[in-house]
Design a protein around this nucleic acid. Structure first.
Length: 118
RNA sequence: UUUUGCAGCCGGAUAAUCGCGCUUUAAUUAGUGAGGAAAGUCCGUGCAUCCAAGGACAGAUUCCCGGAGAAACUCCGGACGGCGUGAGCCGGUGGAAAGUGCCACAGAAAUGUAGACUGCCGAUGGAUUUUAUAUCACAGGCGAUGGUGCAACGGUGAGUUAAGAGCUUCACCGCAGAUACCGAGAGGUAUCGGGCAGGUAAACCCGAAUCGGAUGCAAGAUAAAUUUGAAGGCUAAGGUUGUCCGCCAUCUUCAGACAUAUCGCUUGCGGCUGCAAGUAAUUACAGUCCCAGACAAAUGAUUAUCUAAAAACAGAACACGGCUUAUGAGCUGCUUAGAAAG
RNA sequence: GCGGGAGUAAUUCAGUGGUAGAAUGCUUCCUUGCCAAGGAAGAUGUCGCGAGUUCGAGCCUCGUCUCCCGCU
C-alpha cells in the first residue's frame, strides 16, 4: 500500500485521467497518464483490476498488490513523473506473472532504466 | 498386508530487511490485523426505517414420532422404506374410500365393480323330436382364455361347477381393518373375521399446523451545503399487503439530481478452560480473555533454513445460527471385507 | 453487500409430461451464357451440468455452473 499522499482516490480524478487518452501497454498491464503536473502537486497513482479480468477476488488482489509493491519501491528510490496521475490496469495475461516480471514491465512502461536507483 | 466406512485434526513454520490498515504514544514508540468455508445467497434471526383501528377473500410455508434450539429447507435420537456381502449410507415419509384431471403407442378393455370383440358353457328356460339321448351361440350364464402394456381389478395351487369365479370352500402369501399385548410415540408382535374400489398429490386439490407487512447498513441518524422541475386552493399525487372495503397525512407542499464529514461499526444468543446433567443434540455453573473494522478499500515483496514442495480451495465490508458447494499433502481414533501366517 | 431474470440447431426464438419444431443461414441439385432471385431435396441438438419424482422429463422438484440486469 502506498502512502496516503500518493493515492488516487476520487472518482472524478479517475475519469479525468481516462479522458486524457494517453496510454501505454506491455505484458497485460496498461498505464493511463493524466495531465502534466505543477510544481507543488503530489504524484497520484491508482490501481485497477476489473471483475471481468478474473472472477476470484484473491487473484485480482494479488495482481494489485504486486503492482503496488513495484511502484512503492520506485517512489522510495526517488522516482518522480511529469504527470499528475497514473492508473495501472491489470489484464488477464498478467495474472500469473511473478513479481520480477511485473516489476520489469512497469519500469519499462515508465521509462525507468534498469537498476532503478536514481 | 490389501481394502471399506465413519468421526476428527491441520490449513505452512522460523528469522531478517523494506512496507500497509486500526488503536495508542512526546516519539515508527507499543500492540494488533481474514476463513474453514470469509464463497453461493438457499433458509432463519437480531438490528434499523416507514406503515399498520382493523375485516373479508386470496396467499405463503411446513408435513412419520420424541427431544434440542431464539428460529430454520436446522440439529440429535428413534420408526418405516430403499441400497450395500458388511461396517454403514440415502429418503420433501399426511390423505388416492371427498371431488376433478392425466395414463402416449399397443391392447377387447386404462376406472365404471367394465367387458363391444375373440372365447368357454348349453346345467336352467325355449325350439327340433313320440319320449329319453342328442342337436341349435335361441334366450341366457361366465369372466378361466387373448403374441398388449409400467400397470389388467389381490397372487399361486387345489376343490367345487354345465362352464366358471374370493366363491362368508381350503392351504400358503400380500394389502387394509378390528381386538389383545409391548412401547412415551411413530410403530411392532399375535389372533380374529373374511374386507380386496389400479397408478399419479415433486397434477389440481383435501386435511392439520404456522405466518403483521414492506425495505435492507447502499437500512438509517446527526451536521453543514449546492441545484432542477411540478402543482393546487381541498384537488392532484402519495402511503397503507395481492384485491376490495376502510384508514392515514398536509399548506406551502410534493417529486427528484449532485455531493461531504461523523455516527451506525463491533462486547456478542462471544471465545477458551474446568466441572456437572443427558445415549446425544444441548443446557446449567465457575473462572478467564477482548480477538480486523476498511471506504479506489489494509496481510505484500525480497532473502535464508525446514518439509516431497518458495502448498489446495480461496479474501471480512452490520452481526449471528444453519444448509449447500470448492479444497493439496498428511496425521489420529474406531471399523468392514478379503488373503496369508501363527 | 442486497434484489431480479435467462440458458433449446451456426444465429434469433417457439414448444400442454408421450417421436424436439419454425425462420434465417449452410450443403447438393434444377433453372441461367454467368450471378442474384425462384424451385426441389438434405444435414445440423449431451434441450448448460448433476441427482430425484414418474411407466416415461426440454417441461415437475432439489443442487450446481455460466451469463445478463437493477440499486451505488
Amino acid at each position: 500500500m502506498l502512502q496516503q499522499d500518493n493515492r488516487l482516490k476520487k472518482k472524478v480524478a479517475f475519469t479525468a485521467t481516462y479522458n486524457n487518452k494517453n496510454s501505454k501497454h506491455k505484458n497485460g498491464i496498461t498505464v493511463y497518464f493524466g495531465r502534466e503536473k505543477k510544481e507543488d502537486e503530489e504524484l497520484k497513482i491508482g490501481f485497477v483490476v476489473s471483475k471481468k479480468t478474473h472472477k476470484r477476488a484473491t487473484k485480482r488482489n494479488r495482481l494489485k498488490r504486486l503492482m503496488r509493491e513495484s511502484c512503492r519501491l520506485l517512489i522510495k528510490n526517488g522516482f518522480t513523473s511529469d504527470y499528475l496521475s497514473l492508473i495501472f490496469v491489470g489484464h488477464e495475461s498478467a495474472l500469473n506473472l511473478t513479481f520480477k516480471e511485473i516489476d520489469e514491465s512497469i519500469k519499462s512502461l515508465l521509462g525507468v532504466k534498469d537498476g532503478g536507483n536514481l
